[in-house]
C-alpha cells in the first residue's frame, strides 16, 4: 500500500448558473394511509391486545380446557358482566382505587419532602441514599403482618403498606433527577436570582421531570400490585372488599371465571393508568418539551 503513492486525478471544474427544480416526487411524499395508521401508538397496542384475546379464546375452545382450570375469554366477559350487575364489582373497584389514590397522594408528598431534604445538603442526601437502599428491596407485602398489629385490620394498614411501595421509588427517582440537572441550567437558575425553595420548584422540578415522572410510574405500578396482594389477605376494609378480595372470594366459591374477571379488571385498570393517564401526561409535558421522543 505504501509502496505506490497515488496522486489524486485532476479534473475540470464546473459551476451551474442555476439549479433546476429537483425532478422527483419524493422530496416530501405523504405517507400512505396504512403507514399513517401503523404510526398511531394505541392502534398498534390494541392490535397486540386483540391478538392475545383471540389466541386465548381459540386455545381454550379448541383444546377444550376445563373451565375450572382456565375459562374462555367469553366466559370471563360474562362473569365480568355478572360481577358488575350481581356482585357489586363496581363498588369493589371503587374501594381499591380510593385507598390507592389516598396512599398515592400521601406517598408522593412524603417522597417529595424526602427528595427536597436530600437535595438541600450532603447529609440529607446520605440519609435518603441509605434509607432507600435498605428499604427499597423489602417487598411491601412483607410488612403487612406487622402493619396489621400496628394499625389493625383496615384501610390504615393498607395505606401504610402502600406508602412503603410508593415513597422509595418516587424519592429515589426524584433525587436522581435533581442530581442530573445539567450544570449550565443550574447556573442559569441561580444567575436569575432563584434560591432555596423557588430554585427547587421553578428549576429543579421541571428540569428533572422525566426522572420524576418515571418514579411516579414506578410507584404507581408497585402500589397497585401491593394493594391487590394485600387485599387477597384481607379486604379493603374490615368487612372485606376490594378487587383482591373479589378475586379471592370468587376462587373460594370455585367461580373461576369470576376470579378471571377480577384479574382482567386489575389488568385493565393498570393498562388504563399506564397508557391513558401517564401517556397523556407524557405527551403534554416531556414530548412537548423534547425531553422524550413520542
Amino acid at each position: 500500500m505504501a509502496d505506490v503513492k497515488t496522486d489524486p486525478i485532476e479534473r475540470p471544474e464546473f459551476e451551474r448558473p442555476s439549479v433546476g427544480k429537483a425532478n422527483t416526487a419524493d422530496v416530501a411524499r405523504p405517507l400512505s394511509t396504512l403507514e399513517k395508521v401503523a404510526n398511531i401508538d394505541p392502534v398498534r397496542k390494541f392490535t397486540v391486545l386483540l391478538t392475545a384475546i383471540v389466541a386465548w379464546e381459540l386455545y381454550t375452545r379448541v383444546a377444550k380446557v376445563p373451565p375450572l382450570i382456565f375459562p374462555t375469554f367469553s366466559d370471563t366477559i360474562v362473569a365480568l358482566w355478572k360481577g358488575f350487575t350481581e356482585y357489586g364489582l363496581a363498588s369493589q373497584i371503587w374501594a381499591s382505587v380510593g385507598i390507592l389514590l389516598a396512599g398515592y397522594v400521601i406517598g408522593l408528598a412524603i417522597g417529595a419532602a424526602l427528595s427536597f431534604i436530600a437535595v438541600s445538603s450532603r447529609f440529607g442526601s446520605d440519609i435518603l441514599g441509605t434509607l432507600t437502599s435498605m428499604l427499597n428491596p423489602l417487598p411491601a407485602v412483607a410488612l403487612l403482618p406487622l402493619a396489621m398489629i400496628w394499625f389493625g385490620l383496615g384501610a390504615k394498614s393498607l395505606i401504610f403498606v402502600l406508602l412503603h411501595s410508593i415513597v422509595w421509588p418516587v424519592a429515589l427517582n426524584t433525587h436522581t433527577g435533581f442530581m442530573s440537572v445539567a450544570e449550565p441550567l443550574r447556573m442559569v437558575g441561580r444567575n436569575y436570582g432563584l434560591r432555596n425553595i423557588r430554585y427547587v420548584v421553578k428549576l429543579l422540578v421541571p428540569a428533572a421531570f422525566p426522572s420524576i415522572l418515571a418514579g411516579m410510574k414506578l410507584g404507581w405500578a408497585f402500589a397497585w400490585r401491593t394493594l391487590i396482594a394485600a387485599e387477597l389477605v384481607f379486604g379493603a376494609a374490615s368487612e372485606g372488599g376490594g378487587l383482591g378480595w373479589f378475586i379471592f372470594a370468587s376462587r373460594n366459591e370455585m367461580d373461576i371465571p369470576g376470579a378471571f374477571a377480577g384479574l382482567l379488571t386489575v389488568i385493565l385498570i393498570g393498562f388504563f393508568v399506564e397508557n391513558v393517564i401517564f401517556r397523556n401526561i407524557e405527551q403534554g409535558t416531556l414530548v412537548r418539551w423534547g425531553m422524550q421522543s413520542s
Binding site: L185, M187, N191, G193, L203, W289, M291
Partner: peptide
Amino acid sequence: PDRVMVFQEFDQLLPW
C-alpha cells in the same frame, strides 16, 4: 441578575 451569563452549552435554555 446584574451580571448575566451566556454559556456555550445549548441546554442553558429551559426546555419546558
